[in-house]
Simulated scan of single mutants.
Amino acid sequence: MTRDVPPEVLASRLGYLLKHAYLRLTEESARALAPHGIDGRELAVLAVLDAHDELSQLEAAGKLGVDRTTMVALIDALEGKELVERRRSPHDRRKNIVRLTSSGRERLRDAELARQEMERRFLAPLSSTDAGCFVRALQSLVGTPANADQASDSA
């Protein structure tokens, strides 16, 4: 796919470059995840749920930085695909605990491999050293610890 070269006046503007890099990344992510029947936001939900033993919908929403309504829609979609299940918390019946199903764990594993390969291809124009520096620089800008998992929600 041929990409248009940015107008010279915009070629060094951070906002322009970040926006277009993000748009390209989301396109690549959508293509990589499509065979797995999920999108980048759904993959992020699965990853967060997998990383924690027990999260309520509200707690998961907080970790993902999404509002309650969006989280309900994401969980509804994933539940419809039989990738997650809601259960009442045994400690607080007002809370729904969301957990991955066995299908959800399998889909997460396969989709994560696809995401990692897509990110490797996306960063291929950079040397491995530069790619690592780029990710660490972005982590600094968004306030993520440098040793955090390099997973992105691509959304």
Score class of each variant (00 low, 15 high):
residue 1 M to Y: 07
residue 1 M to D: 10
residue 3 R to Y: 14
residue 4 D to F: 11
residue 5 V to F: 07
residue 6 P to V: 01
residue 7 P to H: 14
residue 8 E to G: 03
residue 8 E to H: 04
residue 8 E to L: 09
residue 8 E to P: 03
residue 11 A to C: 01
residue 11 A to V: 04
residue 12 S to V: 09
residue 16 Y to G: 00
residue 16 Y to S: 06
residue 17 L to Y: 01
residue 18 L to R: 10
residue 19 K to T: 15
residue 19 K to V: 15
residue 20 H to M: 06
residue 23 L to K: 04
residue 25 L to Q: 13
residue 27 E to S: 08
residue 27 E to Y: 08
residue 28 E to Y: 05
residue 31 R to Y: 02
residue 32 A to S: 05
residue 32 A to E: 01
residue 34 A to D: 12
residue 35 P to R: 03
residue 40 G to C: 04
residue 40 G to Y: 11
residue 41 R to Y: 10
residue 41 R to W: 05
residue 41 R to T: 15
residue 42 E to W: 04
residue 42 E to G: 12
residue 42 E to R: 05
residue 43 L to A: 00
residue 45 V to M: 11
residue 46 L to V: 10
residue 47 A to K: 03
residue 48 V to R: 02
residue 49 L to S: 01
residue 50 D to S: 11
residue 53 D to V: 04
residue 54 E to L: 07
residue 56 S to L: 08
residue 56 S to G: 14
residue 56 S to H: 06
residue 57 Q to K: 07
residue 60 A to R: 00
residue 60 A to V: 06
residue 63 K to M: 10
residue 67 D to Q: 07
residue 70 T to W: 07
residue 71 M to G: 07
residue 71 M to P: 08
residue 72 V to G: 11
residue 73 A to C: 02
residue 75 I to N: 00
residue 77 A to N: 12
residue 79 E to W: 02
residue 79 E to L: 02
residue 81 K to R: 14
residue 81 K to G: 06
residue 85 E to W: 01
residue 86 R to H: 07
residue 87 R to E: 14
residue 87 R to Y: 09
residue 87 R to D: 15
residue 87 R to P: 07
residue 89 S to I: 08
residue 90 P to D: 08
residue 90 P to L: 09
residue 93 R to S: 15
residue 95 K to R: 15
residue 96 N to I: 10
residue 96 N to C: 10
residue 97 I to P: 01
residue 97 I to A: 05
residue 98 V to C: 08
residue 98 V to R: 01
residue 100 L to Y: 14
residue 104 G to N: 02
residue 106 E to V: 11
residue 108 L to C: 04
residue 109 R to N: 13
residue 109 R to H: 15
residue 110 D to W: 00
residue 111 A to Y: 02
residue 112 E to T: 15
residue 112 E to V: 09
residue 114 A to D: 08
residue 114 A to V: 11
residue 114 A to S: 14
residue 116 Q to R: 10
residue 117 E to W: 01
residue 119 E to C: 06
residue 120 R to A: 14
residue 120 R to G: 03
residue 121 R to N: 08
residue 122 F to H: 12
residue 122 F to G: 00
residue 123 L to I: 03
residue 123 L to E: 02
residue 123 L to V: 09
residue 123 L to T: 01
residue 126 L to W: 06
residue 130 D to K: 05
residue 131 A to R: 07
residue 134 F to V: 12
residue 138 L to A: 13
residue 141 L to R: 06
residue 142 V to D: 09
residue 142 V to Y: 12
residue 144 T to K: 11
residue 144 T to F: 07
residue 144 T to M: 14
residue 145 P to R: 05
residue 145 P to L: 00
residue 146 A to L: 13
residue 147 N to C: 04
residue 147 N to K: 02
residue 148 A to L: 05
residue 148 A to E: 14
residue 153 D to Y: 12
residue 153 D to M: 05
residue 154 S to D: 12
residue 155 A to T: 09
